[in-house]
Amino acid sequence: MTTRRRMPKRTWLTDSPVAAVVLPIIGLAAAIGLWWGATVAFSIQPYLLPSPWDVVVKFFEQPGYLLQETGTSLLETIEGFLLAIVIGVPIALVIVRSVILERLAYPLLLMVNSIPKVAIAPLLVIWMGFGQWPKVVMVLLMCFFPIVISTAQGMKSTPTELVELMRSLNASRAQEFFKLRLRYAMPQIFTGFKVAISLAVIGSVISEFVGATKGLGYVIQQSGASADTTLAFAAITLLSVMSIVLFYALVLLEHWLLPWAQEKR
């Protein structure tokens, strides 16, 4: 009965949809509990590590302000992310059509991706001023690479027998592209989106550290100057929530748009 021991046991805890929602919440609650326990047990000063309760209180001292800053960061994140899709997907589609273009473009893409984004944040401010643009562009730079790579990979993953099928039906190049290759690439493109959206949030924070007057990144930077650790934690918590919500929004969108792709995972 070695196989039984090796197989994960299947119970309602692994299979029911209720458990799928409840279990992550329990995990999160346990982590917060530990954090809280630590601050109480070792009587840690709030300027070093505030307790969860301090953070919640901090949020409710100025909820309007913090939500407004969250809105600013959210807008930059979504704008940059959508721009990365609008630019990245077509570039990937062009690249996969030609080996020469792919070889020309790949090292360039790798180079752009390897630049530490923090290093160019001040440059973006010099080039584009203090407005929203340097932030959106930073998010774009963060998202661009995973979207291009996964789209290109997806476009190359079409099984040969399906390509041959389309050929045998005398399909035009456009039909082969839209009815087969692009559709087949969608699950992989979505994987790129999901990687990119978390990076997008990070990008918006980085850009708000430099030359910004708004946004959660700015809030964190300011709280550092005044040693208001609790405020920084409140902002970080809001960022995490934002990141999680955006990620699951994409997961839901994928379930809705690509119901056929779930079986393949």
Partner: peptide
């Protein structure tokens, strides 16, 4: 168009 081809694998579009 009056010749059809059937493959070893079903080659169905999964969506």
């Amino acid at each position: 168009r009056d010749v059809s081809f059937m493959f070893q694998r079903p080659a169905l579009l999964p969506w």
